[in-house]
Design a protein around this nucleic acid. Structure first.
Length: 416
RNA sequence: CGGGGUGUGGCGCAGUUGGUAGCGCGCCGCGUUUGGGACGCGGAGGUCGUCCGUUCAAGUCGGAUCACCCCGACCA
């Protein structure tokens, strides 16, 4: 992609209506556009980041047997009445609307009930089990107050997976496999070393659920961490969990964290409430065991933006940067331009995402833009570099000093 | 939903005791520039969130309303 063709612009001025660092940077760099409080549009750069995060999540979900699908945003009232969760006193974040004939509809804040209801049509026997399905879906939640930029919106993108099983043991097995898959996801997203599996409040069926909490000053949760045993507990279940797990409360470290994932073991509750059963081997009707597993995709993006930024702007991990290389030509000397073109094509030929800042603006502006956008690798072509054995100037986003490399070595470095 | 704050060109802001709107950035044109967000000259762009009221006169005063932000409560 050439920078001159990218319609979004960067800006030096900080938006006045944002306090959250992630929103300030993402808006300034042209990743997101604020539609209204808690509602953000994803522009080409932002969408590329989201898609890269999704690819990682998708690979890991597929690896444990998840089948991707796409549920709907419009949801029938009846499905939610079976678990009493249509009631605004029980779920207070509903967006609801009506059809022309007056029939009430819900706008998806979760898909737990609709997924179960859908599975009812296809899963009838123990032979069909287990099943795990997942989607990337927009969730709409009528939060009293939106805050923290894209970390907590009224509209956000979530990966939600659901699994149904014939036995408790099988659900437990899958639940644990999912925990491992989630760890791999956070590792690949570059936040693995800051992310902890955390005990949090459960539901009716289990005492605790598990959250994945990333240590982050901008988070809204408090995490109590036992570094020695590598166990973390959410503040909301601190007393119960420390007792249950035999932790020494005085040794726990209290840290700000952001919830980047949450998984629930529902047992058979949901299936019982909804009256959904399968025929087991012994020809009796039994309710499914049901688990649900969420990752807030847009929230993760916000957390990463917060965690890795510096005073010059965003700093994306290589894996999810919208482009990996920010290519800069200095000056419009035809030889420099044709050399830059050559580098541009070589990178593309090796499947390295490159954004070429081909504008005829001063070098400082290009450097500042590349830094603000958080592109991990910067490559410069100029008369100076060409005079220097035709080497390229390379600088990592967080490097102090640039170094000279050949095109071959650059490609090698970026494809290893 | 309780408390606090803010709405003025695209963005960030100023605007005195009420007298008919200005600055920086950005944008357009011309020229000079080109290794960390250049400079000169010339331009375009605003019924001051909205409505009602007070007044000869409202960005400015009063009321209502909407939106946005922060703190709290709540939440993936």
């Amino acid at each position: 992609m050439k920078r001159s063709e990218l319609f979004t612009k960067t800006t030096k001025t900080v938006p006045a209506d944002e306090a959250a660092l992630n929103a300030k940077l993402l808006i300034r760099a042209g990743y997101v556009h604020k539609e209204m409080a808690g509602v953000y549009a994803y522009l080409p750069l932002g969408l590329r980041v989201l898609e890269k995060i999704k690819s990682i999540v998708r690979e890991e979900m597929n690896a444990i047997g998840g089948q991707e699908l796409l549920m709907t945003n419009l949801q029938p009232k009846a499905v939610w009445e079976t678990t009493r969760r249509w009631d605004d006193d029980i779920v207070d974040i509903w967006f609801k609307t009506k059809m022309q004939n007056g029939e009430e509809l819900g706008l998806a804040w979760s898909h737990e009930e609709p997924i179960m209801n859908m599975l009812r049509d296809y899963v009838h026997s123990y032979k069909d089990l287990p099943v795990a399905v997942y989607q990337f879906q927009t969730k709409l939640r009528n939060e009293l107050r939106a805050k923290s930029g894209i970390m907590r919106g009224r509209e956000f993108l979530m990966k939600d997976m659901y699994s149904v099983h014939a036995t408790k043991e099988d659900l437990d097995r899958f639940y644990n496999e999912t925990i491992e898959a989630y760890k791999r996801i956070y590792d690949r997203l570059g936040i693995g070393n800051l992310t902890y599996v955390t005990f949090a409040s459960g539901g009716a069926f289990t005492k605790f659920s598990h959250e994945f909490q990333t240590i982050c000053e901008a988070g809204e949760d408090w995490l109590y961490l036992d570094r020695e045993r590598n166990v973390a507990v959410n503040e909301e279940v601190l007393d119960e969990a420390t007792e249950e797990l035999g932790l020494d409360k005085s040794k726990l470290e209290k840290l700000r964290s952001a919830e980047v994932g949450n998984i629930f073991n529902f047992g058979t509750d949901k299936a019982e409430q909804m009256g959904i059963t399968f025929t087991d081997q012994d020809n009796t009707q039994k309710p499914f065991y049901y688990g649900s597993y969420g990752i807030g995709v847009t929230r993760v993006m916000g957390v990463i933006a917060e965690l890795f930024s510096d005073d010059r702007g965003l700093v994306w991990p290589d894996n999810i940067a919208p482009y990996r290389v920010y290519l800069v030509n200095i000056g419009d000397n035809p030889e420099v331009l044709s050399r830059t073109q050559e580098v541009y094509e070589a990178l593309q030929a090796n499947d390295i995402d490159v954004l070429w800042d081909d504008r005829s603006v001063r070098p400082g502006e290009k450097f500042a833009d590349g830094d603000l956008m958080g592109i991990p690798h910067r490559v410069v072509v100029s008369e100076k570099t060409m005079a220097n054995d035709n080497l390229l100037e390379y600088k990592g986003r967080t490097d102090e000093q640039a170094v000279n490399v050949s095109l071959e070595d650059l490609v090698k470095k970026l494809t290893d």
